[in-house]
Design a protein around this nucleic acid. Structure first.
Lengths: 201, 201
DNA sequence: CGAGGCCTTGACCGCGGTCAATGCCCGTGG
DNA sequence: CCACGGGCATTGACCGCGGTCAAGGCCTCG
């Protein structure tokens, strides 16, 4: 198992090393190649994925063949289709590596086991989920209200690390617009900053 | 405190009555009138609201004065601006009664207290939050992909109880479209079902 | 060096937003 | 009991943002 994950559990989740050792057998460490799939639509998701290095994305495929990215998971994020994993239903999502990644696979029930072994962790875990919900609320708010341009600017603000690492057509899909549209928005942006003087360094 | 809430904690959350009694002072029961506000933008949210009867909605106001409904909370749902309540920041949301409602106010930290008193509850609580995230994932998916019509039909499927109780302009706002647009969609729907014969009873 | 993936550009078009007017329902008060 | 008024839903005319389609350029990788 990777050290990033150990670190995360011990420092962020405040989980003692011993508890972690007990659960060793519920986690495993994998290298995944760019574009490799960890979950495909139709299958049942058995794992939650913790990203040590790289980026995963979770997306669905609409009937007309379009990808909709529900979530990016860069370093220290977790991703899973909760419906599939917890309800034991076939997933409607794909989880795929955007770049070569190092990923910790957490077996279904791992987090529950940890909280039962060490109840104090549940506070942290609840907090993590709350944060997750917060972010999703905010995103819904954006999708409801913002124009293509506003959403793009908001994305830049919130995930500056991602723009350079994720292909634009995926970002477009995350924002709910087409690559063409994103391209137009970006042109306007660069024209604008050119006019205002090159105050961007 | 209302019985619905007691029921919910004891049967769904499997919380023993004694534990609940210890926390009595962290909850309070209120009747709220239609259109009354429980939280206004700019204030700090101190409570999570559990709806015993009625419907609450949480929404934001965009700069151009438009409402965006993040969530409806009918009977047995909880609603709160997690960012504000847990980060102690002024909220950007409003929480308002859609109809006359009976609401239990849970003080910040109530749920945490419960899980610390009775750790088994955390599993249930985690489950509740997971469910919440699941639903939001699904909604994001809809907002990303669906046309106005698809979103409306999906809403009908998921929340049939709400259409008759919530004014259409709020549903439009929840779907991220204008009332005019929703009206057009509904006309098409009724024309369609008229043509196909009145197989709708 | 070739091929394929990604980004951009332009022309066109349609969904859904905007604005304005009308209708409908219902609660309130004279 | 009826008249009035205000909130909500609907309709129509118009328009613009962003989607679609097709083509071209560029970079990377085999």
């Amino acid at each position: 198992m990777g050290n990033v994950f150990r670190d995360y559990l011990q420092n962020i989740m405040e989980l003692p090393a011993e508890t972690l050792d007990i659960c060793q057998d519920m986690v495993s460490y994998h290298s995944v190649k760019k574009s490799e799939f960890l979950l495909s639509s139709g299958n049942i998701g058995g794992y939650t994925y913790f990203v040590e290095k790289g980026i995963l994305r979770m997306y669905s495929l609409s009937t007309c063949g379009k990808e909709h990215i529900v979530q990016f998971a860069p370093e220290r994020w977790m991703v899973t289709d909760r419906r599939s994993t917890y309800m034991n239903e076939p997933s409607v999502y794909y989880i795929q590596a955007v770049e070569k990644s190092e990923v910790v696979f957490l077996q279904r029930g791992f987090l529950e086991k940890i909280t039962s072994l060490h109840p104090q962790t549940s506070t942290k875990l609840l907090f993590y989920l709350q944060r997750n919900i917060m972010l999703m609320q905010h995103r819904i708010n954006m999708l409801l209200g913002g124009t293509a341009e506003e959403r793009y600017l908001e994305f830049l603000k919130q995930y500056p690390q991602l723009i350079s690492r994720v292909p634009l057509y995926m970002i477009a899909s995350y924002l709910g617009i087409t690559p063409e549209s994103l391209s137009r928005v970006r042109r306007f942006e660069s024209m604008r900053s050119a006019l205002l003087g090159k105050s961007n360094t």
